[in-house]
Amino acid sequence: MKCRKCKEKAIIKLYEHNLPLCKEHFLEFVEGRVQKAITDFGMVRKKERVLVVISGGKDSLTLAFLLRKLGYKISLLHIDLGIDGYSEISRKFCEEFAHLYQLPLQVISIKKEWGKGIKELARETYKSPCSLCGLVKRYYFNKFAYENGFSCVATGHNLDDMVSALMANLLGWRISYIAKQTPVLPEEGKLKKRIKPLVYLTEREIAAYAFLQRIPFSRQDCPYAYTASFLKIKHLLNQLEVSSPGTKYSFYLGFLKNKQLFGEGKVTLRECALCGFPTVTEICSFCKTFRKEEVRNYAGES
């Protein structure tokens, strides 16, 4: 198989575009897709400071690599979830990456903040580890970005993440969540803008890019990943993708074109009575989960 652009030997075929590419043109393709997403959705300008949230996995590290390569001003944030046998390895990859590419890295350790890891906290708060993990990450990366003057937070969500979340929310008709599956969530008060520059790339493309650029990333699966329904939906969508290449891409572009059908996804935000960060209720989910005593005291006072 030959590269469509230069007729050299192809190293990958992008079925959704019916496009075989050599290494050089594939790297160029990936970089172009990220720049296109940033431009198409007005994500960020080169003079702004971007906080990239990294987990140690291929997507977030590749995102940081690409943003750096494309000339954006980035800093890294890693949230150490305190999952024994997993988080130590994830953190090590983040620290190695920051060192290798000379990027500033901050680490927030959940064990240091709360005395225990996500697994124990999930048990105590009667939440699933996945929903608690999401809550903790969203709270801390937004707080860190707000307090440290970043213009936005970039996450490594890719096309597969977006379409599987979209499909899962469609299956459950969670309208307000469907409306939020956009590549940019705008800034609102203390809620910093969130951007997803990998939205035009599949996991396979990102993994291939990371492999070709020799980006060291953790290949371990989160021990709780098997509980995530998104994973099952990802497999189903990938089966459809093989029989009909381009399904994921057109599904997502179709959503972007028709997203007004699901409303603006806008809710009225106010500041949490305890921490001051944005919430739809009087006290935010983070405080309700982690500051139970303060919540009780507040309820007693008011």
């Binding site: 190293i11 990958i12 075929k13 075989p20 996991e203 396979r204 291939a208 492999f211 497999h235």
Partner: peptide, 16 residues
């Protein structure tokens, strides 16, 4: 599933 894997031989990616 070809969408969910990369195939590598001697440090190089292979097409299907």
């Amino acid at each position: 599933n070809r969408e969910e894997v990369l195939v590598i031989k001697n440090g190089e990616l292979l097409t299907e």
